[in-house]
Nucleic acid binder design. Structure first.
Lengths: 284, 284
DNA sequence: GGAACCTGTATGATCGATAATACAGCTTTG
DNA sequence: CAAAGCTGTATTATCGATCATACAGGTTCC
């Protein structure tokens, strides 16, 4: 029996600490246990602990001060983009107008079986495939793979795709979009997406798969989007709509969300290192 | 300069192949390149390729036949649970009535700073913290961590929490829930969640963070949910509601999605590693 | 049947990750 | 200042992942 491919120990400790930090077990500014203590706690060597801390530091989750300790960095300083889920598509279009787009790949060819089926293509019908990366402030945050039927793709040029939202181009061609389905999931970054999004292979990604239909029911766009979770997430506000015993909820539409001004009080000098709270004891 | 913690080569190839399969590049039933060919293509040894294929086989994505080849398994046989996003909460409650729940942890204590802030607690106010795992057909698919203000948590017992949906217990106490916000994101499985969900550490997870408010604006529930993406995903149907040049969309409410029944032959069980304490069955 | 594939399995060599230890330099505390 | 703690750095040893190779046994096709 071969040993299964097990993640490295350093990675395990990195994940453990990261979870504690983002879960709020360790407030921003708190000093986490020293490297020797962490090594003893997890039964690994100090070198391995340092590797884990290296990763945390590179992600900006902690800040190390020689001679002093390792401190939880104020994570609210790097707030991710927020997409209101009740209005994703128009939101994305708005973003298409305020962010940069890099067109990585563009061409026509035979679709895969899965794409052909989801778009409802006739056998032998070809598609246009494009891969784009969206950037905000010069940093990539989404990796988009779109498939469009050939007859529709031919109505715009490669340069136009790089400059304008795809849905706008689709509608410009005379097609009316009426209905869409989308699914949200999670996956790990493969080599290509990792390179495009400036991530390590194996990083977590949010995925959105969307199919847009025209009134006749034909699919006109198949989108597979990968998002960096640290730079993008979906939000929605829900309001209660069901009867008293029903507990039914609906998305609250229309309101532009308040931009979440987090007011973190900076931890100043003269403050004693907050002892790490031993959250809530699990009972054994 | 120390080499950064880099994912194992086998893992990289596993991710690469997995992406190709789920992207539909290789239709179900197709035979993928032989192990020597894959080894040459990715400049690794055949042993490493086999490791990657072991992972794919364990996840049910491929099927290996000695002497013949490795074939893409029909992925449609393992459809994940689908939650309609336009109606998540009631959907979850419905599921609470048809799935098993294990209560892993239950207790009271001081909340973390992040929890206290999001629930709008007064300084010093305590919370009830519980960790539960939901199972469908005996297989875990979600790992739920909830925080509830102490005054509210005291209105129900530990056994009740294990048997009934939390929102139902909250409303039973007389609190009316009016508004909620939720955010969807992705992360990697830490040691605890990985063990509870029967996954390897570092597996991708869908996350849902939800805060439910009562009319006064006080938070009454903070939920942090982790979902196995192969067993759970969010779906939504969108309809066009905006004007002609507007491209505005809204979730289509109302219709419960057909659960896409597909009963695969059970591959192999053989193991029941559940060492989780206190499994409480519930069924109406 | 037999050639040419394939997967399954085993071997020893090599390289990277980890362990154990030691020490330097900085910060905080008394 | 001095003690104690911390991070930063280096060294050597060990263990696991990977490599390169070889062979066994099944499948496909001529």
């Amino acid at each position: 029996m071969k040993s299964a491919v097990e993640p490295l120990k350093a990675r395990r400790i990195y994940l453990l600490l990261r979870d504690r930090i983002v879960a709020g077990d360790m407030p921003a500014g708190a000093r986490l246990p020293g490297e020797p203590a962490l090594a003893a706690e997890h039964a690994v060597s100090r070198v391995t602990v340092r590797r884990a801390l290296d990763l945390l530091e590179k992600e900006g989750l902690v800040q190390r001060k020689a001679g002093s300790g390792t401190f939880v960095h104020d994570t609210r300083s790097v707030r991710p983009i927020v997409a209101d889920l009740s209005n994703v598509l128009s939101h994305l279009i708005d973003m298409g107008r305020s962010t940069d787009v890099k067109l990585l790949s563009f061409g026509y060819g035979a679709p895969s079986e899965a794409i052909a089926e989801s778009l409802g293509l006739k056998p032998g019908e070809r598609v246009q495939r494009s891969v784009r990366v969206r950037l905000i402030d010069g940093e990539p945050f989404s990796y988009l793979t779109t498939h469009v039927p050939e007859w529709l793709g031919l109505t715009y040029s490669e340069a136009e795709l790089a400059a304008r939202p795809l849905l706008e181009l689709i509608e410009r061609s005379g097609v009316t979009t009426e209905r869409a389905t989308q699914a949200i999931n999670a996956t790990l970054a493969g080599p290509e997406a990792a390179a495009a999004l400036d991530l390590e292979i194996g990083s977590p990604l949010l995925t959105l798969t969307r199919i847009v239909y025209e009134p006749s029911g034909r699919g006109v766009e198949h989108l597979h989007a990968l998002y960096r979770p640290d730079r993008y997430s979906f939000h929605m506000d829900l309001v209660r709509t069901g009867g008293d015993g029903e507990r039914r909820w609906s998305p609250a539409l229309g309101w532009p969300r308040a931009p979440e001004k987090a007011k973190p009080e900076k931890v100043k000098s003269g403050e004693k290192p907050t002892r790490v709270p031993r959250a809530i004891k699990q009972r054994s």
